[in-house]
């Protein structure tokens, strides 16, 4: 049996693609590099949009990346059910692409925040979170200046009612996100975005605050192997 293939996208200015690819391999998958300018998903089974400052965050974080040639392929594939995970800048891109509701704005405290962050897993009905248990408390690194999740009251009420809030900050909200939201999913559940960084928390060796990030990658690989 060949390993499940998870695409890892690199835009100009992406920072975390190497860690993301390493995390995929660590969990036993094959990491397939995808290039922003190449409109080819290379037949991958899932896609990871890593963090960084794609296109320099010009205009708004993720606003330019959304129109990259690769995204022209990725957006319809994601709408059709391809599992997609976006962390940090990847989450911002998913919101700008309207694959996820709401938007991410400058942290309420205006400062860039880099710290180990408590997070509660609120929803395990996604291909990226099935290896967690609902209500599980985990710790992941956060590092961002624009991570304050906002949505209009109707959208916020709908995602809360629909179980689309996947992660919530605990022990202090780092950025002023509405309802302490750290991550959300789309209605179907195949697309998940979060500000914290699971790909930086898979190995003790790197000084990560935990290895809680591993479950993201074991979740998706189990899902891909079993379908």
């Amino acid at each position: 049996m060949s390993a499940a293939r998870v695409g890892v996208v690199t835009f100009p200015g992406t920072l975390d693609d190497q860690d993301a690819a390493r995390a995929v391999r660590h969990a036993g998958g094959e990491a397939v590099p995808l290039w922003h300018a190449d409109p080819d998903l290379k037949g991958v089974d899932a896609v990871f949009l890593p963090g960084g400052f794609s296109y320099g965050d010009y205009l708004r974080c993720g606003a330019i990346s959304r129109f990259a040639p690769l995204m022209e392929e990725l957006i319809p594939a994601a709408r059709a059910g391809l599992p997609v995970l976006g962390t940090c800048n990847g989450f911002q891109i998913l919101c700008e692409a309207h694959l996820l509701p709401g938007a991410l704005m400058r942290n309420a405290g205006l400062h860039y925040v880099c710290r180990d962050q408590g997070i509660r897993v609120e929803n395990t009905a996604t291909p990226w979170t099935s290896d967690f248990t609902e209500g599980q408390e985990i710790v992941l690194p956060v590092k961002h200046g624009e991570g304050r999740y906002v949505a209009d009251p109707a959208t916020l009420a709908a995602i809360e009612a629909g179980g689309q809030v996947v992660f919530r900050y605990t022990g202090g909200n780092p950025n002023g996100s509405l309802n302490d939201i750290a991550g959300i999913r789309n209605e179907a559940g195949n697309i998940v975005g979060l500000m914290p960084h699971p790909e930086h928390a898979v190995e003790d060796l790197t000084g990560a605050p935990s290895t809680d990030g591993r479950a993201f990658f074991t979740s998706i690989l189990k899902k891909l192997v079993n379908t």
Partner: peptide, 11 residues
């Protein structure tokens, strides 16, 4: 108008 403008407030 309903979105908090943290930068405007700082100014």
């Amino acid at each position: 108008p309903e979105i908090l403008d943290a930068q405007g407030q700082a100014i």
